[in-house]
Amino acid sequence: MSALLLIDAGNTRIKWALADDAAALGDWRAQGAVPHAEAATLATAWSGMESPLRVIAANVAGEPAREAILAQLRASVPLAVVEWFASSPRRAGISNGYRNPGQLGCDRFAAAIGAHALAPGKNIIVANCGTATTIDAVTADGVFLGGMILPGLGLMASSLARNTAQLPQIAQDGKLPAGFADNTDDAILSGILAAQAGAIERAFARHEAAELLISGGAAPYVAQALALPLRHIDNIVLIGLHAAARAG
């Protein structure tokens, strides 16, 4: 059984997973993540694995990230065939409803593929809560309708601290206060979580969705503010790449 290396280069980190072609989605042999500044360590991690015959990579971090990843692939898996995943009009059971299908971020397209593969036959919302938060709608029969992009929790908190005279920088991983906040740190946390949750809940209601699939580093914090039927998925983009690779 051949091995497949999946790579998700987001705005903050490079996530990867090694899987068998026919393995269940999310059933990884190995996985890891590094900040972009530590991309040079990837070859060491990959060289200790069974050499994959195929690599499929999604990159939204620009040309420097692409070149850094390629250098690590050449050093560790030089014989693997590399595909740079891109949005297209249709793939792996998803029809891309964007006005210009190629303009859709490849991470959002992969997340939609992964979400539909995990919840076929349902109207779903997929929220990926990272540096930015993306909230997208997929129909039961696999049509990607579009969605929303907003700053992630960290960006919202940093924006308030940077652009106001007296508001502090807070950590995004605090405990959501019950009721109205009675101190400034909790008031900021309540506000940014309510903004994220409100956008997700608005999309969920508009789409008449049956389920929310939520992913990304900030997902556990946003999830606590939601009252929706949801599943927390660890790296929905990698799962979507796996589903796309299996579909051909």
Rank of each mutant, 00 (worst) to 15 (best):
A110Q: 10
A111H: 09
A111T: 10
A111K: 11
A111E: 02
A112M: 04
A112Y: 01
A112R: 01
G114E: 02
A115E: 09
A115D: 00
A115W: 01
H116C: 09
H116L: 10
A117Y: 03
L118F: 06
A119C: 12
A119N: 08
P120F: 11
G121W: 00
G121P: 03
G121F: 01
N123V: 10
N123W: 04
N123A: 13
I124H: 02
I125C: 04
V126K: 08
A127F: 07
C129A: 09
C129G: 04
C129I: 02
T131I: 04
T131Y: 01
A132L: 00
A132C: 14
T133H: 06
T134E: 08
T134R: 10
I135N: 02
I135T: 06
D136P: 05
V138M: 02
V138P: 08
V138W: 03
T139A: 03
A140E: 04
A140K: 04
D141R: 06
G142D: 05
G142K: 05
F144K: 01
L145Q: 09
L145K: 09
G146V: 09
G147W: 04
I149W: 04
I149G: 01
I149K: 01
I149S: 11
L150W: 00
G152Y: 10
L153M: 04
L153N: 02
L153D: 05
L155I: 15
L155G: 08
L155M: 14
A157C: 03
S158C: 07
S159I: 07
L160D: 06
R162A: 14
R162L: 09
N163F: 00
Q166M: 13
Q166F: 08
Q166V: 11
L167N: 03
L167S: 01
L167C: 09
P168T: 09
P168R: 03
Q169P: 08
A171G: 11
A171L: 13
A171F: 01
Q172I: 15
D173S: 01
G174M: 03
G174K: 01
K175V: 14
K175H: 13
L176K: 08
L176I: 01
L176M: 07
P177K: 06
A178I: 10
A178F: 03
G179S: 11
G179F: 09
D182I: 15
N183K: 12
T184F: 08
D185Y: 13
D185S: 14
D186Q: 14
D186E: 15
A187N: 12
A187P: 12
A187D: 11
I188C: 02
I188V: 04
L189K: 02
S190C: 00
S190T: 13
G191M: 06
G191Y: 06
A195G: 14
Q196E: 15
A197D: 11
A197P: 11
A199V: 06
R202M: 14
A203E: 11
F204Y: 12
A205E: 15
R206H: 11
R206Y: 10
H207T: 14
H207P: 09
H207A: 15
H207W: 12
H207E: 15
